[in-house]
Structure formats: structure tokens, C-alpha cells
């Protein structure tokens, strides 16, 4: 077992419903990530993805269970875990520089103005916003705003980044460029990242591990899909990789049908030992679980035409 940099241990989220009943969004959710790993979560709306992310960020507290990051149970938010918000959440009365500097001066309170500015500038340059430092968010395009959000998250040199559909509001071209930037930065800095997305290709391009969640309420983590694509993959020739379609079809099949039927089909599903799916390696389809389960789970990528 690799070191568990992040370990979500049996968390649940329940809301009081009408008439004294409680609605369970998810329960007994176990999930772990290694240091430097990029993980994407895919699932339909309402499966509690955002809640999981908020719990990881410390913005929300689980009804049960605990989250352990770097050997310590988390309580509340931390500068170690930076969040990139879907709506970029820039402070509109501050400039680009001001928004990033706010984060920097929050982390290093004793720094003087000049030091904060130099540090801030480094990260503005990193996301390619040199020259726009003194613009206000209202003067920026959606892509530039999200770049500021990324710069703000990176500037505090967090232990991990949490991203809640960061590119979903952007046009395809901008999204692609930002995906490249995020991937480059994460690989460069060895950043651990947890990202929610609806975009299958985004997950395939960025993630080392893809978490598939079933539909809520009562959502559960169904599978962990290991990304078989090489680490030096490029966005433009992703689809030429022999395992690309097997991986993509597996995820899409899950989203289209199995996310609904999974709970009924897999009564023995053990949330503590979620099966890991290795696309293209038939013998290793399921890393853990009984033989009976192995036969029930379809083994994707076994099509001879597709496996390498």
C-alpha cells in the first residue's frame, strides 16, 4: 500500500429532511490518495461530490467519520489545502494583484509589502497574467479570472489543491489551455490535487486516478480507475493512445448506466475496499474483493482490438 497522504475514513453527510427524517447524501465513504497524485471525481449531480470536496477543504464538516491529511485529522479550513472555486470567487473590489496578495499576506502575516508583492508577482507570472496585475476582476475574461483563482491557490504553496469544476464555466479553447497549465504546474511542483469534473476527457487528461461515484442520495464510491495513459501524455494526441477509448468507454458506461444500477448489482460492495480498475490489464481488473465480485464486474479493456 502506498502512503496515504490523504485518507477519507468512513465519512457520511446527512441532512435533516421533512418530518424528522434524515436524508443521507452518502455514508461510509472511504477514499485515499498518495502524495503528488492527481485525482478526479466523476459522478452525476447530487452524488455529493462537492460535499466531499468541501469536507476535504474544511468548509463543511462530515456527520460521521474523519479526514486525515498528512497524518493529522483535519478540523476546519487550513492554508495547507487551497481551494479553486467553480465561480472563481475573486473579491471584485480588489485588483488581480490585490486578490493574490490577500492570500499571500494571509499565509505570511509578518511579510512586508515588498516581499508580498514579489511573491505575488511570481505566481501571477506563472499563470500568464503578467501585465494585468492592476485590472479588476470585472475587466477580465472568464479564463483570466480562473487563472487568478489558480494563482491565488498556488501562491500559498499548499500541500494540496482542491478544485470544484474549475473549468466548467469556460469555453472549450480556454478550458484546454488552462488544463495544460494546471497539468504543467502540478507536475512541476508535485502538487497533490483533488478535482471534481463532469468532463470525461478532462479527467483522462489530468488524473492519475479517477473516482467514480454512484448516484445520490445514498451515493457511494463505486470504483477507482487507474489511468493507464503515460505520464507524458499531451492533450492533443490523447485520443491516439490505444487504451484511450477503453478508458473513456468504461467511464461513460458507468455514467450512463452503471451509476444508477451499481448499488443493486453489487450488494456485496465493500466501501472500505473499493475495487481498483486497471484498464487493459485483464488479470488485474480488481485489486481487492472476492472472486464472485470479479465475475460480476465487467472487465473493460479486454477487447483484444483495444488492449495494448
Amino acid at each position: 500500500m502506498t502512503d496515504k497522504f490523504i485518507s477519507i475514513e468512513g465519512i457520511a453527510k446527512r441532512y435533516p429532511g421533512s418530518g424528522g427524517a434524515t436524508t443521507t447524501i452518502f455514508e461510509n465513504l472511504w477514499l485515499s490518495m498518495a502524495r503528488g497524485e492527481f485525482a478526479c471525481v466523476i459522478g452525476h449531480s447530487g452524488c455529493g461530490k462537492t460535499t466531499v470536496l468541501n469536507i476535504l477543504a474544511g468548509l463543511d464538516a462530515p456527520s460521521e467519520g474523519a479526514v486525515i491529511v498528512d497524518g493529522q485529522a483535519i478540523s476546519g479550513t487550513s492554508l495547507d489545502r487551497a481551494v479553486i472555486f467553480q465561480s472563481h470567487a475573486l473579491l471584485p473590489w480588489r485588483t488581480v494583484l490585490g486578490n493574490v496578495a490577500y492570500a499571500v499576506s494571509s499565509k505570511w502575516r509578518s511579510w512586508d509589502r515588498a516581499k508580498v508583492k514579489t511573491h505575488t508577482q511570481t505566481f501571477i507570472d506563472l499563470v500568464g497574467l503578467t501585465g494585468s496585475e492592476h485590472k479588476r476582476p470585472s475587466e477580465l475574461s472568464g479564463g483570466m479570472k480562473q487563472r487568478v483563482g489558480i494563482a491565488r491557490a498556488l501562491s500559498i504553496t499548499p500541500k494540496m489543491m482542491l478544485m470544484d469544476e474549475p473549468f466548467s464555466a469556460l469555453d472549450a479553447l480556454t478550458r484546454g489551455t488552462l488544463q495544460d497549465e494546471v497539468r504543467r504546474i502540478c507536475l512541476q511542483t508535485g502538487q497533490t490535487a483533488f478535482m471534481i469534473t463532469h468532463d470525461v476527457d478532462e479527467a483522462i487528461y489530468l488524473a492519475d486516478k479517477i473516482f467514480l461515484m454512484t448516484n445520490g442520495p445514498g451515493a457511494m464510491l463505486a470504483e477507482v480507475v487507474e489511468n493507464p495513459l503515460p505520464r507524458d501524455r499531451a492533450r492533443t494526441d490523447l485520443h491516439r493512445h490505444p487504451l484511450y477509448y477503453a478508458l473513456r468507454n468504461h467511464i461513460i458506461d458507468f455514467l450512463v448506466t452503471r451509476s444508477k444500477t451499481f448499488v443493486a448489482e453489487q450488494p456485496d460492495h465493500d466501501p472500505r475496499n473499493v475495487p481498483t480498475v486497471h484498464i487493459g490489464k485483464p488479470g488485474l481488473t480488481i485489486a481487492s474483493g472476492s472472486e464472485e465480485q470479479q465475475r460480476q464486474i465487467r472487465t473493460p479493456g479486454t477487447n483484444p482490438g483495444l488492449s495494448a
Partner: peptide, 20 residues
Amino acid sequence: EWINVARTLEVGTIRRAFTV
């Protein structure tokens, strides 16, 4: 979301009141 930004940056109550 603005409050959440301040929270994730561990900004204290007083500073949050004045800066956000």
C-alpha cells in the same frame, strides 16, 4: 463564496470583517 475564500485562507474574524 467570499466568506469561504477568507475561511480557506484562515483569516481571523476581525480581519475577515474588515477585509471581506
